[in-house]
Amino acid sequence: MTENVQAVVDKTNKSKRLLSIDALRGFDMFWILGAEGVFAALFLITGLSVFNVAAEQMLHTTWHGFTMYDLIFPLFILLSGVSLGLAAKPISLYSAVERKAKYRHAYKRLCLLVLLGIVYNHGWGTGIPADFGEIRYVSVLGRIGLAWFVAAMLVWHFKTKTQLYITAGIFFAYWFILAFASVGDFGGGNLGANFSINAWVDQTMLPGIRYQDSAVDPEGLLSNLGSIINCLIGVFIGRLMKSQKDISTVLLRNLLIIGFFTLSLGWLLDPVLPVNKTLWTPTFVLVTCGWSVLFLALFYWLIDMLNWQAWAKPFAIIGMNSIIIYLGTALVNWKYIVDSLFGGILTSLSDGWQALLAIVFLLLLQWLLLAWMYRNKIFIKV
Score class of each variant (00 low, 15 high):
Phe73Glu: 04
Asp70Lys: 13
Thr46Lys: 04
Leu86Glu: 06
Phe176Thr: 12
Asp10Asn: 12
Tyr336Phe: 09
Pro207Asp: 05
Asp131Thr: 11
Leu294Gln: 01
Tyr120Ser: 13
Leu286Gln: 06
Ser80Asn: 14
Met29Tyr: 00
Trp280Arg: 06
Arg253Asn: 06
Gly127Ser: 07
Gln212Gly: 00
Tyr336Met: 07
Ile166Glu: 09
Thr278Gln: 11
Phe379Thr: 05
Pro90Thr: 03
Lys335Gln: 14
Asp339Cys: 00
Ile257Ala: 11
Phe171Leu: 09
Ser214His: 14
Gly259Met: 05
Ile32Glu: 01
Ile32Ala: 06
Leu369Asn: 02
Lys381Glu: 11
Leu19Ile: 04
Ala193Cys: 02
His60Lys: 11
Gln354Phe: 08
Leu346Ile: 07
Asn194Asp: 14
Val38Pro: 00
Arg136Pro: 03
Ala151Arg: 02
Pro207Gly: 02
Leu225Val: 09
Trp31Ser: 06
Leu269His: 03
Gly220Trp: 05
Leu268Glu: 04
Tyr174His: 06
Thr204Glu: 13
Tyr137Gln: 09
Asp131Gln: 14
Tyr326Gly: 15
Phe342Gln: 05
Trp63Gln: 04
Gly208Ile: 05
Ala297Lys: 05
Thr62Gln: 13
His60Tyr: 07
Gln6Ser: 05
Ile128Arg: 04
Lys381Met: 06
Lys159Val: 12
Ile318Asn: 09
Ile258Ala: 13
Trp353Phe: 15
Asp270Val: 04
Phe195Asn: 13
Ala181Ile: 08
Trp175Gly: 04
Pro282Leu: 05
Trp291Met: 13
Ile318Gly: 08
Ile378Pro: 01
Val8Pro: 01
His157Phe: 10
Met153Arg: 11
Lys242Leu: 10
Leu273Asp: 01
Val5Phe: 07
Ile118Ala: 08
Glu36Lys: 09
Ile233Asp: 05
